[in-house]
Nucleic acid binder design. Sequence first.
DNA 1: CTTGAGGTACGATGCAAGTCGTACCTGAAG
DNA 2: CTTCAGGTACGACTTGCATCGTACCTCAAG
Lengths: 111, 111
Amino acid sequence: MAGMNLVGPEADALDLGAVFRALADEHRRSVMTELAADRSDSERGCNSFNLPISKQTQTHHFRVLREAGLIDEIDYGNRKGIRLRRADIEKRFPGLLTLLGAESPGGTAPR
Amino acid sequence: MAGMNLVGPEADALDLGAVFRALADEHRRSVMTELAADRSDSERGCNSFNLPISKQTQTHHFRVLREAGLIDEIDYGNRKGIRLRRADIEKRFPGLLTLLGAESPGGTAPR
DNA sequence: CTTGAGGTACGATGCAAGTCGTACCTGAAG
DNA sequence: CTTCAGGTACGACTTGCATCGTACCTCAAG
């Protein structure tokens, strides 16, 4: 069966240290910036981020983001979906996604 | 002469990556949490944080915080003062200090 | 079935970072 | 002056982490 057998911590269990450690890496932060900028929160593929690293390293980074509670990974067997846990993050760390969105080229800021 | 010959980046030059890397360390984050919780922003001594590490390592951590633009270090020669750059941080990354303050035992939350 | 793309597991490697020991500097107290 | 506490500089050590190579798994398309 498909979907979300890869689970991160509960919303209330999100640790600020783990979040900062996750966001300390440039590649992971760019992923989060892209996700935060997309207000539709649609599910995305792993290779839709165009990360200049090998797929093994990508697996590592997405795992860190999931274990920090920032994203969900939906397992389809030979494929994987990425979805931002916007509601949980906003509940536990309000303003964090806005901070990330402000770093986006387009920005979250309304023009 | 005394005071602030140890300088960090300008307010506009604060880098989110450097900030997250600085806050990724538990000791540095505890310092920032204490500073963020004190709304008076009074200057504090280095050893007023009771960090369970050697003084050489403390020097290292305060340097990282300063180079990330989060604090000012005021040099008195044989003594050093620490002051939170609240205004600059709020200007560049609004909400970040609130995030840290929420992790404080007392909290930034009004009673 | 076979093939191939997407992903993971495990291990190795290289580099960045946290930590401390030793030595030295600075200024206040005596 | 000497003494001493606070801080720094330099170096060494150790741990953590980002990265990739190899091998294997999963599923969809032929």
